[in-house]
């Protein structure tokens, strides 16, 4: 069993490398493989007629590939720990309104505090994500019969709708804010640069280490709070640390590429089908597979409507929503 999982993880890493390569190689303009490899060597100078190709690879394709890796890893892991914490197969940063919280905070910061750079508004994204998750979590888990998947999804929809109104209000007050907002809210890897990826990357790295370290206590939590307590797990501490990890991962990813929905939902399900419910294996799979999906979605978006592009956020929604619907249709559903 373990060797099967190890081999699977190695294959997933190879797939990730392949997806990254595709993301560097494919795009609106066809560039010969040799030129791409030359451009990737630091310090290499473009040969005659290669200047434009070098620029495309270095300034456009490398940054968006790195962004895809960082944001994909963050959203996949966030979805994985979120589903474990809430014991809820419908948990997703988009469905639970967390991305909406980060988005509202970012737009407020841009409009009223004049924050312009990702390094500035990433903190607001954390604040918004934390606030939204806290509200939805408490709303969805209070009451006698405790949390149910349906309740959390509904609470997320309610809070998300209210936050979306706030975001719309702010964006519509000012045309230039709206213009930036509408390009960001689709969820695109294009247009970012390495600075954005780097500043988000540090937070994602920290959040990812925390999330991966939580595998064992989350396994205990899966048995229910009482059993976990009896097994000696620190239930309160685990929940708090998981919430911190979710906030950091979702906030950083949303600040970097916009509110991308469904990636954090679909990937953990696909991974669980292969490795089973053990979080110590499941979470690494999520971390590796989610960037694969995001990068492939981005590449597909670049190719299907050449010379135009479809944003990665649109493609993941079109792929992920059917997964959500399939889960809803397959599960036995009780009352809310």
């Amino acid at each position: 069993m373990t060797s099967r999982r190890t081999i699977g993880l190695i294959i997933a890493v190879v797939a990730l490398a392949a997806a990254a390569m595709l993301s560097l190689a494919l795009g609106t303009k066809s560039i010969p493989a040799g030129t791409i490899l030359d451009a990737l060597r630091p310090g290499a100078l473009p040969g005659p007629g290669q200047a434009e190709d070098f620029q495309i690879v270095r300034d456009l394709r490398v940054p968006r590939t790195v962004l895809g890796l960082v944001a994909g890893l963050a959203l996949g892991l966030a979805g994985g720990v979120m589903q474990a914490l809430t014991r809820n197969p419908l948990a997703d940063p988009g469905i639970l309104g967390i991305n909406a919280g980060a988005a509202a905070a970012v737009v407020l910061a841009i409009r009223f505090l004049g924050v312009g750079s990702v390094t500035g508004y990433i903190w607001f994204a954390f604040g918004g994500a934390a606030a939204a998750f806290t509200v939805v979590y408490f709303l969805g888990t209070r009451g006698r019969s405790g949390a149910s998947p349906q309740r959390l999804a509904l609470a997320g929809a309610a809070v998300g709708a209210a936050l979306l109104s706030v975001t719309n209000a702010v964006a519509l007050l000012d045309v230039s804010t709206f213009d930036r907002y509408r390009l960001w809210v689709v969820g695109s890897l294009a247009g970012g640069d390495l600075d954005v990826a780097a500043s988000a990357g540090w937070f994602v790295a920290a959040g990812a280490l925390l999330a991966l370290a939580l595998g064992r206590p989350l396994n205990a939590l899966a048995l229910g709070a009482d059993s976990a307590q009896a097994l000696g797990a620190h239930v309160g501490r685990t929940r708090l640390l998981t919430a911190v990890a979710i906030t950091v991962l979702c906030g950083a990813a949303t600040a970097a590429i916009g509110p991308v929905a469904f990636l954090g939902l679909a990937v953990p399900h696909a991974a669980r089908a292969f490795v089973g419910p053990d979080q110590r294996w499941l979470l690494p799979y999520c971390a590796v597979l989610a960037p694969v999906v995001l990068l492939v979605a981005d590449v597909v978006g670049r190719l299907v409507v050449r010379p135009g592009e479809l944003e990665a956020g649109l493609v993941t929604a079109l792929i992920g929503a059917p997964v959500f619907l399939a889960i809803v249709l397959r599960r036995r559903i009780g009352h809310l």
Binding site: L90, G94, L154, G187, G313, A317, A321, L325, V328
Partner: peptide, 19 residues
């Protein structure tokens, strides 16, 4: 319950299309 959840899923997808 199922209708509501399906509604949430379909709405989320259409929201992406609208954006």
């Amino acid at each position: 319950t199922r209708i509501i959840l399906i509604g949430i899923g379909v709405s989320a997808m259409l929201l992406a299309v609208n954006n």
